[in-house]
């Protein structure tokens, strides 16, 4: 008897029966309040700013300039870019800086100043970005450098966490990462400090349609 069947048999015995291959359906999902469509962008911005993030507005025509301005602000010499098409286009438009990609040696990636990625979804109710590892290699670029700049198409905003979970594809990609503001800790006397292991600054560039 394998450990698995032994442990499952033990659990079933404690529940007073034999191992069961089926179960009645789980309780119905609770109804959660939503957010009106015209309030998505304002709510997203308000929530993200409240927890220490920054929101910049741009259009397809101005996004290059907005990101260039941010890179200038952070004196970013070395930039860690994801491989999303929108991010690659930015790299091509700003060749004067040193752009790294996920295939570069880890020692170089750990020394980058700013990470640039896109985001799959934005969740208005919490100011959250959702990143999908199957769409874009952004797991490290959004995490390792001290500053994270994320491009978010405002048409990709949803109201709630529940709505975002509903839109996840099946099978799920290897990693879905939810990001709400800068990395933070309060482990020393409950004093809030940002940028402990992840970025200390999060800048979302919201692309208005």
């Amino acid at each position: 008897m394998s450990v698995r069947s032994r442990m499952l048999a033990d659990i079933a015995a404690r529940l007073g029966r034999k191992v069961s291959a089926s179960a009645p359906p789980p309780p119905p999902l609770p109804a959660m309040p939503g957010i009106a469509g015209n309030m998505l962008a304002t709510t997203f911005e308000q929530k993200l700013v409240a927890i220490g993030g920054h929101v910049h507005h741009a259009t397809a025509a101005t996004v290059g300039a907005v990101v260039a301005g941010l890179l200038q602000q952070f004196a970013a010499g070395r930039i860690f870019a994801s491989d999303a098409d929108s991010v690659r286009a930015l790299a091509a438009a700003t060749p004067d800086r040193h752009w790294h990609g996920p295939d570069d040696p880890r020692t170089e990636l750990l020394a980058t100043d700013v990470g640039v990625t896109s985001a799959w979804l934005g969740i208005a109710e919490t100011g959250t970005l959702v990143l999908r590892s199957d769409l874009e290699r952004s797991r490290q670029a959004s995490l390792v450098p001290p500053v994270h700049v994320a491009l978010l198409d405002s048409r990709r905003l949803v109201g709630t966490l529940g709505a975002a979970l509903q839109q996840l594809p099946r099978p799920l990609p290897p990693a879905v990462t939810f990001v709400t503001g800068p990395s933070r800790t309060a482990d020393i006397e409950l004093q809030l400090v940002v940028g402990v292991h992840g970025p200390k600054a999060l800048h979302v560039v919201l692309l208005d349609g």
Partner: peptide
């Protein structure tokens, strides 16, 4: 902690199978 949501949630579903993938 009194937060509406913690900063990060990682939803992990096994290793990536595409060459060059992160993780």
């Amino acid at each position: 902690t009194g937060q509406a949501l913690t900063t990060y949630q990682s939803l992990l579903t096994g290793p990536a199978r595409t060459p060059g993938a992160e993780g």
